[in-house]
Amino acid sequence: MVDLAPPADLVADDSARRIASPLPLTESFATRVALILVALFFLMVFLILPLVVVFAEALRQGIGAYGAALIEPNAVAAIELTLLTALIVVPLNAAFGIAAAWAITKFNFPGKNLLITLIDLPFSVSPVIGGMVFVLLFGAQGLFGPLLTAHGIKIVFAIPGIVIATLFVTLPFVARELIPLMQKQGTQQEEAALMLGASGWQTLWRVTLPNIKWSLLYGILLCNGRAIGEFGAVAVVSGHIIGLTNTMPLQVEVLYNDYAFAAAFAVASLLTLMALATLALKTWLEWRAGTPVARTRL
């Protein structure tokens, strides 16, 4: 019979064990503190400071000047144009997103992956190109240029151009949120509804939409944020006609280039507040939906 008692020198002294380090399952305290500080410093420099400087500069000449800058007619026109664009673009792209997600996730057909890639295209392309293609189509020297001038229709350097360019740039947002979710949900509930006698529209309205509620809202939120803040595509297409074809971001550029810094930052601060509201809503939606809705591919 083997003596299974361990030799005395191997038996750990209880007190020694308590002092000895535990399993290395996390970094040392010093390392952790250092990493946190590095991360915070990085974020401070790149996120917080720019945020703060917008408001600091906007209020540099006092709150009176700040208010005046915002109610100045050109600024108001810019605000109106921005909101009008968002009002047109977001519902259209939301409807497109729902239709595209329905087609892609409820049916099987060849070329599905190609379709998804194409929907993602505006994402991978520089916004400048997004504006350029419409100049090529509708500009005075563009494909349809002569035709449009003949009929007195202005697209480029006018509001329609801005709307179309924004439509291009924000097209994927809603679809990209809906497609993975609806793929995961499958078709069972829709089949059940159909078997119970519901029509296609009844199924969409009563069964599908409630199931994708949060992702849909999230997509609309992102689409809206981008529609309001889009710069590159709109800059190419708008012609910078002050008071007429300037959206808020363009107005910011115009004011800044004219050295009206405080006014530029005043309008910018409005955009920043909208961006912060978007972030707050996004966080709230994620909490409401239970799981992080944020996509990994931005």
Partner: peptide, 20 residues
């Protein structure tokens, strides 16, 4: 896997076929 409508109550699930 039942395919119940998660956002509707039991009553509404059962009534669905009649309501549509």
């Amino acid at each position: 896997h039942y395919a119940l409508f998660n956002h509707m109550s039991v009553f509404e699930n059962i009534a669905f076929g009649l309501k549509v």
